[in-house]
Design a binder for these strands. Structure first.
Lengths: 251, 251
DNA sequence: TTAGCTGAGTGTCATAAACACACTTTCAAA
DNA sequence: TTTGAAAGTGTGTTTATGACACTCAGCTAA
């Protein structure tokens, strides 16, 4: 439990980390960005984890979360939201976690509280590349993830729940889509996040009533069916709804 | 990391604390439990703060939050929910905060990340008493709190927002009321939390439609007006609504 | 004893949102 | 020119919302 902080600015805080659930969407399903730190000697399986790092003592938590995102993906200015802190004393207690900690951390025994975030990125903005602390990174379909290092699987489930809750009261889903998109793509996105089928006509009516979409003079091209109208979202209206929410319980 | 519980003091984690926004309701307005650590030498004003403490290395965050609640109020088994982590490097940077830290902390310069919780208590369950790290504790009307130590004022505002959001999708408000209560008391509670007037008839209709209340064969006595029907809430239905939520955006 | 005060309790109508549901259109490829 | 694939569109029913005003029961004080 060190706290020898002579040189605060440059020092990693060995007790607090950030883990960042990065969501993407490919018009078909939700993905999560994972890093693979190699084959575990104890389990013989790849050791998949969510990107994260210890924080520096001179950065805020939000800055640290943005830094991790930037270091890994090279992109900035991404939708980012805190999920909360995870601090079970045994959260890093699996054998394969200990093995990794010994090889990577100056104080492998230190108790680390992690602050989890989730972010929403447009999948084609990001071209995975190796980061300084993982051998590789890549998108994994959310429904195919069944096990992760540390308590990352649990954090992922919390992130999904929070996203589900949030998308019903703020139009943040647009962060997962490109500038121009079709109503069907948006529809599929909502179905993927909420994990259930939504009636097409009712969905379209509701979204259009929010008046958050601007139809473009443009259609899909080259598709083997009736081409779809493209939309962009209305930034102004979006800001308004984002701050007010559009909650509806009635009170 | 030692797990020698004989000497807990050695296991205090100097980098992570818990702060707990404790809400109460007196049938008229919302209150927050504050501790007063004495007159600040630098400001000459009382130094009011939310109860909190560093965590021990062998407890989970939830356990630490419960411990703080128990140490201060003597009560257990309280509704408790995490708000999130607050970690601005300058969150303890006010002069009056530094003064206090020097007198109370082994490592006054250490950067401390705090994990905030809020809890809902039945006000008459709690009889304020001095705790080990504050000279006194007491209920303050939420609307009369304008300044607090550290970043506690900001945390309080987040807590109010979270409570507002939450009460619309889960019936957690009941935690602030005694076993038996009237519809008017519940109505006033919702108005206090949401900070706006709600139509009496519409409110009663909606709450009764949730079928979460069981009318008792009991009325108020000794009131100088028509005595009010008392209700208790239906635990079973409450659990069901709590887990499902009763969100209503329509999707 | 009665008049007056206080808050409890109650119903309806108009409007808006939700939900369920099936066929036609447009384009590309075979 | 036929076929397959997804886009796009409307209505009727049901349910929830929001606005709104008077009577009732019990206490107190004249």
């Amino acid at each position: 439990m060190s706290s020898n902080k002579k040189n605060k600015a440059l020092e990693l805080n060995p007790n607090v980390s950030i883990d960042n659930i990065i969501f993407g969407f490919d018009f078909d399903q939700l993905y999560c960005l994972l890093i693979d730190s190699g084959i575990s000697k104890t389990t013989g399986r790849p050791r998949l984890a969510v990107p994260g790092d210890l924080i520096y003592d001179n950065e805020t938590l939000d800055e640290a979360a943005n830094r991790i995102l930037k270091e890994l993906t090279g992109i900035d200015n991404i939708y980012l939201e805190q999920i909360g802190a995870f601090g079970d004393p045994n959260r890093m207690g699996k054998e394969s976690d200990k093995e990794w900690l010994k090889s990577m951390r100056a104080e492998p025994e230190a108790r680390v509280i992690t602050v989890a975030y989730f972010s929403l990125v447009k999948m084609d903005d990001f071209n995975p590349k190796a980061s300084s602390f993982a051998e590789s990174a890549g998108w994994a379909p959310i429904n195919e993830i069944h096990e992760l290092a540390f308590d990352h699987y649990e954090i992922l489930q919390c992130a999904r729940e929070q996203l589900k809750r949030k998308i019903k009261i703020q139009p943040i889903g647009f962060n997962l889509l490109p500038e121009k998109f079709t109503l069907s793509q948006l529809h599929k996105l909502y179905e993927s996040i909420l994990n259930k089928a939504l009636d097409k006509r009712n969905f379209r009516r509701k979204i259009l009533n929010l008046q958050i979409l601007t139809p473009l003079n443009e259609k899909q091209v080259g598709v083997p069916h009736k081409p779809s109208q493209l939309f962009e979202f209305n930034e102004e209206k979006y800001q308004k709804l984002s701050s007010e929410g559009f909650d509806n319980f009635g009170f």
